[in-house]
Design a protein around this nucleic acid. Structure first.
Lengths: 215, 215
DNA sequence: TAGATTGTTAATCGATTAACAATC
DNA sequence: TAGATTGTTAATCGATTAACAATC
């Protein structure tokens, strides 16, 4: 199997884009593609594409290119899209609801098995075919079901205590929408942060910057 | 004023983190901080912090450090947090609702002035104190109010036509939650993408990768 | 003044791009 | 076989880190 040794985050973050684009090509019935064609359509360089792919193995054929479906499957395997890791959602507010219903977790490598909230009005109602459970029942639930990842859609103030609890129960992988810095406290945790505020402020900077240059 | 010339995205993406952390220090009543202290608390190197800040000007005092409130204000200005750029939200589904209510746009440099959707059940109802308008009234609205940024919370299939329309009306800045590649088509657009699926798949890769290493 | 810490230049490290030999 | 395109090595570019002179 692949060579794969300390792949850089720069490469890893491009994998989903390749996967998505190859799926798109596949659905259009395209069989074969060269790194040059891919580069033009995706806005990378052909060199980078070949470098990236060769971190994991030689998936192409010299003089021919890559077979779309095969490459797509390979990248899917590398990403682990069919692993179905059990995950739970903490916080069924607006954002939690959006996350739960917007993403088809099944096809992205995860399977949502539980949703938790502390709001009595929400507990017992259903979201995305799952009952919203009382956050106080988190521990017995985890002991029985053993989820491996938690999606954190709760305010920063609530995150510290909850991550402590989750970490103690063996959940060390987080998709974190709060601004609490989990990776700083738990060095061996795998944390993927989505900082919407930061993203928005970056956009703000870029608009401001362009405006100031036009004067 | 600042030197600021072709700041790299790496630097720009760290600015919101500085801003957030300095606000936090300010709220704790801390007056002064050195790059060394900041580096330990934020997980950057002191060198990097000084390099980053000096892209925009010399905000510190030799032998003393930085005055928290002053530095915070400077970064806030650089980001343009009080610019109040008018923006509109397209798509009031789960994600759009979450975005609209989760973020206090006023304090992030933007002011939400309109929400649009095509669903008759949603049109006319209110969200975050704004009436959800018929997407067909987008053009007259924009001609009157002149928003400068659009938040796109609509499916990929709807984005192409809509961005064409928005671009034609002079809106060239986008906070894009879909997977349609706006920047590829409109070279002069400023696009901030939030690709939740990609983020999730990256997490999936990292979990899979660690698991495979433990065997 | 002496000590501390900045601003800035130089060195290192890593990521991207270019070049080309291998080979389908 | 000739042409095309990969896999891979070498060159370039950019970002991070280290070092230190300037100075509060």
């Amino acid at each position: 199997m692949p060579k794969r040794e300390n792949i850089s985050m720069s490469v890893i973050r491009r994998l989903p884009r390749y996967y998505r684009f190859l799926n798109h090509l596949k659905s259009k019935g395209i069989n074969r593609i060269s790194s040059k064609e891919l580069s033009e359509k995706m806005g990378f360089t052909a060199s980078q594409i070949r470098q990236d792919l060769n971190c994991f193995g030689g998936f192409g054929q010299q003089g021919y290119g890559y077979i779309v479906e095969q490459l797509c499957d390979e990248i899917g395997n590398i990403l682990g899209v069919s692993n179905g890791y059990k995950c739970i959602l903490i916080g069924a507010g607006n954002l939690g609801q959006a996350i739960a219903s917007h993403l088809s977790f099944e096809t992205q490598g995860f399977s949502m098995v539980g949703i938790f909230d502390s709001d009595p009005d929400k507990i017992g109602t259903t979201l995305n075919n799952l009952v919203i459970r009382d956050i106080r029942t988190l521990e017995p639930f985890c002991q029985e079901v053993h989820p491996v990842m938690a999606v954190l859609c709760i305010p920063r103030s609530a995150v510290e205590r909850l991550t402590d609890q989750l970490y103690a129960m063996g959940i060390k992988n987080f998709w974190n929408f709060s601004h609490y810095d989990i990776a700083m406290k738990y060095q061996d945790a795998i944390v993927e942060n989505v900082h919407l505020n930061d993203s928005l402020m970056t956009l703000c900077y870029r608009i401001s910057d362009q405006n100031s240059k036009q004067n």
